[in-house]
């Protein structure tokens, strides 16, 4: 879009919270937004176009300029290491990356195995611990891996811990907190600076208000 912004939104868990945040920031998004199965939704009155992508792909769309900005979890940014600006912590969809496994178990000495959707994060984490482990990349239902003996540990995002508990797994170490971030393509950041500054300012205001200055002493004038 030449005179407006294309925003890449993550489908699923983060989507609703992100839409709510944009509405609070004063963007008039149509009602069907929430139910639609369309992949591209234009909101001409706001000069916005939304594209709906898998959460893992949002940063990719933004890096290539398929979208000017995007809303992506910090987990995705850590894993994908895309060349994008991470402008704002939206402070929504909180969860964290953690190491989990069956209770009271040790890593296998001979062949330590870790199953994960986040191979880069997992590898970097264990390397920092001085351990070389075999990373098994899975696409979902990671909790299955220790249960059937595919891996000793998993690295995954934990939000309430319910999934772990229901499958008899326990958390061993927390790796990093995860919230959603506003990311921007480096070219759009410069070529569409006016649109982007406005979006950032409006979102920033909502985020600071939501946090009520309690969580962090972030200064609202300084995004």
């Amino acid at each position: 879009m030449k005179n407006g912004l294309t925003i890449a939104m993550p489908k699923g868990r983060i989507f609703e919270e992100a839409v709510e945040l944009l509405r609070k920031a004063g963007y008039k998004l149509p009602q069907e937004f929430d139910e639609s199965r369309k992949l591209i939704i234009d909101v001409p009155e706001e000069n916005l176009r939304f594209i709906l992508a898998k959460p893992m792909d949002v940063a990719t769309y933004v890096e290539h300029g398929g979208a000017d900005v995007g809303i992506a979890g910090k987990d995705v940014l850590l894993e994908e290491e895309r060349d994008v600006y991470e402008l704002l912590d939206l402070n929504i969809s909180y969860c964290y990356l953690a190491v989990a496994g069956l209770p009271d178990t040790e890593m296998n000495d001979v062949a330590p195995r870790v199953a994960t959707k986040y191979p880069k994060v997992a590898e970097a984490y264990f390397r920092e611990q001085g351990e070389q482990v075999e990373i098994i990349t899975l696409n979902g239902s990671i909790e299955l891996a220790p249960l059937i003996g595919l891996a000793d540990r998993i690295v995954d995002i934990v939000s309430t811990g319910r999934t772990l508990k229901e499958n008899g797994l326990v958390e061993y170490e927390k790796i990093e907190d995860v919230t959603s971030r506003l990311i921007v393509n480096p070219v759009s950041y410069r070529m569409k600076d006016v649109f982007i500054d406005e979006l950032v300012a409006r979102l920033q205001e909502v985020v600071s208000y939501e946090m009520g200055g309690l969580l962090k002493n972030e200064n609202p004038t300084s995004y």
Partner: peptide
């Protein structure tokens, strides 16, 4: 360099 303004601001704070 990493264009991580969130990290930059958190560090400064």
């Amino acid at each position: 360099y990493e264009k991580n303004y969130v990290g930059y601001r958190e560090s400064v704070q």
